[in-house]
Amino acid sequence: MVHDFRDAVFDSVLQIVAKNPRTIVLTNDMGAMGLSRIQELYPQQVLNVGISEQNMMSVAAGMALSGYVVFVYGIASHITTRCYEQLKLDVCALKVPVILLGMGPGLSYGMDGPTHHATHDCALLQTLSGMTIYLPADGVAIKAMVEQAYQSRTPAYIRIDKDPYEPIYAPNEHDFSLGLETIQQGESLCVVTNGIMLGRVREAARELREEGIEVALVDLYRMNPCNESRLWEACRNAQAIVTVEEHGRTGGIGSLVGRLLSERGHAIPFCGLSLGDEMLFGSASRTWAFGQYGLEKESLKNTFRHMALLPTTV
């Protein structure tokens, strides 16, 4: 069975559309099977606004002011960076229920060139007051997050990965209200990650267990607002911390955890793995880029091993 984030998202959106006629999905000419299904059943509640991201966000805000809950579906990089000011002034300043469904975060579209790389989306959107940012790791999480964003009636951004996911959570296991979850305990090292990286990191950690290295794994599925006190509790007793993210170095999990440790005066071995900050040209597939930036499984294991075996005092 293929575990597809899009199917999970649009299943949830369909349920919401069905129960609330004042819900609409806008798209900048971006298709998906699940979206087509909604359009067939509820043609009045799906609107292709054309290839016009700036206008799409202003229209979304206006429709929200008129009483709608608005989902906006498009490629993650296009519905965040292209229309950042509309998100700032029309969506966040007005505190309207506009929920961004960002397809293809990180290097999901790595082979399509830098126009399609969503590696700065979380950094940018974290600066917007009132914008909740979700990075779901599996279908259970993303369904819960769609519903949570809908119920909150405030701006939100949900990253939707293009690749299939590894199931992490059992249905109804969590309500995803706390912002993060320690999905496994471990004494040797604490790794903070989210999104599709969580499954990959879990696999690396599983193999290290055979070497006697026990990795605690934290799913930081909500980056804004970050539940800092809970994140601190999850990290404070670790011997070392590694952050793993498919995002630029600035404004991601590494920045967030690094600041948290620094503000609390907590001296501890720390390593942030990311895609760096340079723009990637050419065909930056995930396989290639993860190799370049130490994000593929063997490199992750090497980093985890190295960090777990460091002396405990620095």
């Binding site: 700036q54 206008n55 966000m57 202003s58 229209v59 979304a60 805000a61 206006g62 429709m63 929200a64 002011l65 008129s66 009483g67 709608y68 000011e85 509309q86 002034l89 029309d90």
Partner: peptide
């Protein structure tokens, strides 16, 4: 360049 789009969204909703 924001007001017309915002107004169009309001008008469509109405």
């Amino acid at each position: 360049g924001h007001g017309l789009g915002l107004s169009a969204g309001l008008a469509l909703g109405a």
